[in-house]
């Protein structure tokens, strides 16, 4: 192992630790968010160093990209006074939404708690590090995966694990996306995507760029989807690109959600999960196990499932953003027909 690479790895790790520390300790939420996004990008580098290009793609697209957009959009909300029935004290100073440090230090004994927790965390870190350096050589499941790759219908081992060997996990994971959207609906108190505030136009130059980029994004998504069969790529990365295209178009002022009927929203949210489910159940009919794809058709089925999943993932990711950014998580802004509930239960 050459010392230069070692130095690089060590430097990157130190950078990651510093960025994480800064993200947690920064005074302003805005700084926190920026440090966190930088941390995400640093992680993408780490994944590449660890020979995990699939994870790097996923992290850059989903972890840093999508979550970064959501975090920045949330800052907009937290940095101005609440608009609801807020009888509570209003924090009107924009950009200084982080009052927690001040609040905590006012408590007697808060300092002691803080010290204690820090000491506990340091102790945990010591224990973890000792355990980690003592881990043996393992062996992993690399050989098993390589041995079964033939019958999986794809050539890229990660895709084979995701869509075939451990397809059940991936299916549930698409379900988690769907579930998170349902959760966001519950938090927002209203179901659907139409209505709400449309974004302001970001100016001619950006609109122009976004219009130009969108076809390229869709094309890249299709390319990644197809590539997943033999190289890093696949449904999640492709899906997030589709979602990103939607988010950008929305930012450019396109009223994308205005024409979406509730039925289409429902279909978009469940398409990927449902397709997975249908093929999984279909496998039961000839006497197979759930999600057992016949070897001959496995490649085609996987491509079909991945396409549906990518569309659904893209749609859901877009829905996260469109729902949150247009109504700031408050039902009081629209839909007077469904007032904020006062259920006495």
């Amino acid at each position: 192992m050459n010392p230069l690479e070692h130095a690089l790895d060590t430097l990157l790790c130190l950078l990651l630790l510093v960025l994480a520390w800064k993200a947690l300790r920064a005074e302003h939420l805005y700084q926190s968010a920026i440090f966190f996004i930088a941390f995400g990008l640093g992680m993408a580098l780490a994944w590449v160093r660890l020979a995990a290009p699939d994870v790097a793609l996923a992290e850059a697209a989903i972890g840093a990209g999508l979550l970064g957009v959501l975090l920045l959009d949330s800052l907009r909300v937290f940095s101005r006074p609440p608009n609801g029935s807020g009888k509570a004290r209003q924090n009107t100073d924009p950009g200084d939404a982080e009052t927690a440090t001040a609040t905590t230090s006012r408590h007697p004994g808060a300092r002691a708690t803080r010290l204690l927790a820090t000491a506990a965390a340091a102790g945990l870190a010591a224990v973890l590090v000792t355990a980690i350096v003592r881990i043996g050589d393992g062996g992993g499941l690399t050989e098993e995966a390589a041995g079964q790759l033939e019958g999986s219908g794809v050539e890229h081992p990660v895709t084979a694990v995701l869509l075939n060997f451990r397809g059940y996990d991936t299916w549930l994971e698409v379900g988690v996306l769907f579930l998170a959207m349902l959760g966001i609906y519950c938090a927002g108190g209203w179901v659907g995507l139409t209505g709400g505030r449309e974004p302001d136009s970001p100016g001619p130059l950006l609109s122009w760029l976004i219009r130009g980029l969108t076809p390229l994004l869709i094309l890249t998504a299709a390319y990644l989807l197809w590539l997943g069969k033999e190289a890093p790529g696949g449904a999640f990365q492709a899906g997030v690109l589709i979602g990103a295209a939607g988010i950008l178009l929305r930012l450019a002022g396109y009223p994308l959600t205005a024409h979406l009927s509730p039925g289409m929203v429902k279909l978009g949210l469940t398409l990927g999960f449902g397709t997975f489910l249908v093929f999984g159940i279909a496998a039961l009919i000839p006497g197979g196990a759930f999600l057992e794809y016949p070897e001959y058709w496995a490649g085609e089925i996987i491509l079909l499932v991945e396409t549906a999943a990518a569309i659904s993932i893209g749609f859901t990711v877009f829905a996260f953003f469109a729902y949150l950014s247009s109504r700031d998580g408050s039902p009081s802004e629209e839909h007077n027909s469904k007032p904020s509930t006062t259920n006495s239960d």
Binding site: G203, L205, L206, L209, G212, L213
Partner: peptide, 10 residues
């Protein structure tokens, strides 16, 4: 280039 200049502009 396109992204950078646009971000700068925004």
């Amino acid at each position: 280039l396109a992204a950078g200049s646009n971000a700068c502009y925004a």
